[in-house]
């Protein structure tokens, strides 16, 4: 190093300015093989779903009745379904909906769950109230709740935002507000323990306001259970969406989604096993890749590991 370009020691400081900590995070993330592979797979799935339809000649809802129940071929790499619709095209457009629903609903649930969990764990005064509310939400039977939500809000939302966006908002909210409770309980439990740790006591004793204390000291330390919840949540959201479609609460029937494709394929499991397997594999791949990304992020964000 010194041979090629001898530079005096004082200059090094000028050449390598203090790096943004996110670069360190990225460096650590890069060397995590699982995380890197996960990101590649995840990006590939996104490209498949969002760029694929631009290239692929078939429409997801186009029926070619003469070509029904075909196996794999160059024209239809994944075959066709019982009405002769191209399964590849259906996987693509189904993926768009499922990924969007999965990720947005997950984000919403994590936001609510972490927020309520942290507040309940940190402030004892509102703990009781928030946790009783969590109990209430846990106890509400899901199906009637969704039916009521759909009855009250479907029409106003569709007329305000159009059928598709309105439905999307309704579904994402429905899934979000019915699945934040476990995260809230888990986070609260961790916060209860964390706030008695020495470094929190220390921070508090030097007069750190609760807001900064929570954001800088508490939240980063509950990230790993949140991360686990988040990856599990994506899978749950994608599957819940299919249950909603099944009940007629989800997207209109001419919108394929991965969950619905699995559901529709089950009756044909014996003749055409691929029809239910393919969307199943895609859901699993998505969840697996998000899981590895989460693992990598968690390691990269942990300064104790990053240092090593």
């Amino acid at each position: 190093m010194t041979d090629a370009a001898p530079t005096p020691a004082p200059d090094t400081a000028r050449i390598r300015p203090p790096r943004n900590q996110w670069w360190d995070v990225w460096d650590q993330f890069k060397i995590h093989r699982g995380a890197l592979l996960g990101s590649i797979v995840f990006l590939a799935i996104i490209a498949f779903c969002f760029i694929g339809p631009l290239i692929w000649p078939y429409d997801a809802t186009y029926i070619d009745i003469r070509a029904r129940n075909q196996g794999m071929s160059w024209a239809h790499p994944f075959g066709t379904d019982q009405l002769g619709r191209d399964i590849m095209a259906r996987m693509m457009s189904g993926g768009q909906v499922s990924l969007a629903v999965g990720i947005v609903a997950m984000g919403l649930a994590m936001l609510i769950g972490t927020g309520i969990g942290v507040l309940a764990g940190y402030f004892r005064r509102i703990d009781g109230l928030l946790m009783r509310m969590t109990d209430l939400f846990l106890a509400l039977p899901l199906l009637p709740l969704l039916l009521v939500m759909s009855m009250l809000f479907r029409q106003p939302l569709s007329s305000a935002f159009g059928v598709e966006t309105g439905m999307f908002l309704l579904i994402v909210t429905a899934i979000g507000i019915t699945s934040w409770m476990p995260t809230a309980r888990v986070v609260r439990g961790d916060v209860l323990a964390l706030k008695e740790r020495e470094y929190v006591l220390a921070a508090r004793s030097i007069g750190t306001p609760p807001r900064r204390l929570i954001l800088r000291h508490v939240v980063p330390n509950v990230l790993s259970p949140v991360m686990v919840s988040a990856t599990l949540m994506i899978a749950t959201a994608i599957i819940t969406e299919s249950a909603l479609s099944f009940l007629g609460l989800g997207f209109p029937p001419d919108f394929p989604t991965w969950g619905r494709l699995v559901n529709d394929g089950i009756d044909y499991l014996q003749q055409y096993p691929g029809r239910a397997m393919l969307p199943g594999v895609f859901i699993s791949l998505t969840v697996l890749s998000v899981n590895y990304i989460g693992d990598g992020l968690r390691d990269a964000l942990d300064p104790r590991i990053r240092g090593r």
Partner: peptide, 19 residues
Amino acid sequence: QALVQQWWREIGVEANLRN
């Protein structure tokens, strides 16, 4: 629904499906 939707589209009628 999917089949009827397609036939109606062929005669110029759009159908919004719901289940």
